[in-house]
Simulated scan of single mutants.
Amino acid sequence: MKSVAVIVGSAFTEELHADLELSHQEIITPWGKQELYQITNLHRPAYLLFRHGIPHQILPNQINYRAQARALKEVNCGALMVTSSVGILDAKLPLYSPLLVTDLIMLENRLPDGSTCTMFVTPEAQQGHLVLNEGLFSKTLTQQVYNLAPDLISSMEKEVIFAYVGGPRGKTAAENRMWYQLGASVNSMTLAPEVVLANELEIPCVGLVVGHKYSLPGKETSEDHQGVKESLVNSRSSMEKIIIEFLKKASEVPFKNQIFRFADK
């Protein structure tokens, strides 16, 4: 049986849920060490990855995205949920209500250090081109997550386009206007590299986000320090139940994209 995993962000700590028993693991990868937390009291293998560490100490530009992806592959992940607290650019989308991501805008396919966002850095037998037959977000897994908690997730009828904007600084009003004009519904400093790299390792992904502020031009939410902390707490409470349901009940799905390898005969 393949495992399931969830990547959680700034809104979460190891006290995600009192009923979950977490066991800390260190996975050694060619890209360095990565911490995972296995949930030991479920009937199936399930993992949490805290992208900012415990306690929160890793900024978005400091995340070792390749080590993350490889560690999830090492634990045989067959279904990955990537979460994020986001700024909302579409006035029709509500705050603090979980949304399923349908597509991604990542203008430059690069990691924060400037290198290409790929697992295929040096020539190797398994390298290839990621061909998006289905898109970066698995439609089958996205539907599965919606079915787990239809009363908690906003309607799937509306597209939610995620724009990746590398941190650690916030976006200017002019930048938010640009993202909105490009068709983005929400934006954040993470999620995109994780989804791209997981797909290169043939791990199906679903994106679950929640708006903790409006970044909509003319409706920007105040970003004082206390306001940011409070908004993250509010976003956590609305996502926690879905994450728990996913860890308990989600199942692996077929990978419908393709790694096109010239070496394949």
Rank of each mutant, 00 (worst) to 15 (best):
P254C: 02
E159K: 11
Y65I: 09
K213R: 12
R110L: 08
L107C: 10
G9V: 05
A163N: 05
Y96K: 08
L20E: 03
E245K: 15
F12K: 03
N187G: 13
L72R: 01
E124I: 11
V4D: 07
T140Y: 04
I203F: 05
V131N: 09
K33S: 14
G135F: 06
P168F: 03
N61D: 14
Q127A: 14
T29S: 00
D103I: 02
E245G: 08
Y146P: 02
S3L: 06
I259D: 09
E134V: 01
I242G: 02
T172S: 13
E108N: 12
D113A: 08
V195C: 06
K92W: 13
L152P: 01
V206P: 03
E245A: 15
T142P: 00
T221L: 06
I259Q: 01
L80H: 08
K249Y: 12
H56F: 10
L136G: 00
D264P: 08
E230Q: 15
K213D: 14
E21S: 15
E15F: 05
H24C: 10
A79S: 10
I58A: 08
G167N: 05
F137D: 03
D151L: 13
G207S: 03
L107R: 15
E202G: 06
A46M: 03
V160Y: 00
G166Y: 00
V209G: 06
E21K: 12
P204M: 09
G135Y: 03
R51G: 06
L141E: 04
C117I: 02
K265P: 15
G135D: 01
K249G: 01
S185A: 12
Q226K: 14
K219H: 13
R177W: 11
I58H: 02
L95V: 04
N234K: 15
K213S: 12
F260S: 13
P94G: 08
N257S: 05
I63A: 06
A184D: 01
M81V: 09
N147K: 15
G32E: 00
A149R: 04
Y214G: 02
Q143E: 15
Q57L: 13
D103T: 09
E21V: 15
L148Q: 05
S154G: 14
P60K: 04
P123Y: 08
S23P: 05
E21L: 12
G211R: 00
Q57S: 14
K2I: 11
V253N: 02
H17K: 12
S3N: 09
N257K: 06
A67R: 07
N109D: 11
M81T: 05
E240M: 12
D264E: 13
D151K: 14
L48H: 10
I259V: 07
T116P: 11
P123D: 01
E245F: 11
P55M: 02
K249D: 07
H225S: 11
A163H: 04
A71W: 04
N176P: 03
P98T: 05
Q181G: 11
F120M: 07
C205E: 00
L16E: 02
G207L: 08
Q258R: 10
V206A: 07
K229N: 14
E14G: 12
D103N: 15
